[in-house]
Design a protein around this nucleic acid. Sequence first.
DNA 1: TGTACTGTAATATTTTTTATTACAGATAAA
DNA 2: TTTATCTGTAATAAAAAATATTACAGTACA
Lengths: 135, 135
Amino acid sequence: MNGQFQIATHVLTLLCKQPGELLSSDYVAGSMNVNPVLVRKEMRKLRVCGLIESKEGKTGGYCLALPPQKITLADVYKAVKLPPALGQAKNKPNPACPVGKQIGAHLDHLADEVEAAIITKLSTITIFDFVNQFD
Amino acid sequence: MNGQFQIATHVLTLLCKQPGELLSSDYVAGSMNVNPVLVRKEMRKLRVCGLIESKEGKTGGYCLALPPQKITLADVYKAVKLPPALGQAKNKPNPACPVGKQIGAHLDHLADEVEAAIITKLSTITIFDFVNQFD
DNA sequence: TGTACTGTAATATTTTTTATTACAGATAAA
DNA sequence: TTTATCTGTAATAAAAAATATTACAGTACA
């Protein structure tokens, strides 16, 4: 139950709907019923990737760093760094077994291909597109 | 850290390499350093989906139910039922907010599209293909 | 009839995610 | 210059999910 991508997308949607305004973490956290600190954590990731800007101090808050047509959901996905879609084994397969010895590399390669497929799909959708779906 | 897909794929690889033989959960669990009960749980999912067969009692174990050319990694993915690749928000967005009111439906639709992209990718790879990568 | 499996439940442990609390630093306004 | 309000961040607690462990009923074979 990982809602980091949803939080980031929700905030970006709000920022896109109120261009030019600075929205506070308390405000957006209230709009989605989630803890403000969690919002600030996701915002840090988005800021590091150059998707948003933030301003400290009184009247501070967050706004988009780029036009929403330039931000794809793939950018969001990469910024948020979710765990891999196929999961990730933590076990160490038996190296004495010919399968166990090699399967890690093959599974990693497969995981990379799946991540690439996800990113290809998400790169076709911008925040602008996403927000345009709303009434 | 979810290794269910990896466990299922590992077992299917072993079953594919030893056609006709029944492999026990203890044997395969030893090959991948994981708990045998966890193996049996994944095997139940694969059996329900018709990918493997199991036999109880002494000399019991697991074997493929289909030729490995007929089992795709998409079948495995669907059988294992991982949590959605984009995660899943547990929060209930504020229904008084026009964004909060609608975003759930749009995020669900997006999640469906991403799952479809994953399945499209994985459906191009059979267990036979996967196992053929091994030396 | 004993042995060695699957099937499954119950419980505990570990890991991950989310929530909460706290506070330093920044900035605007009184 | 002081106060209020925000970000940034750390530390900790609580909740949720995954995995490990234990236990045992049922099945099938020797």
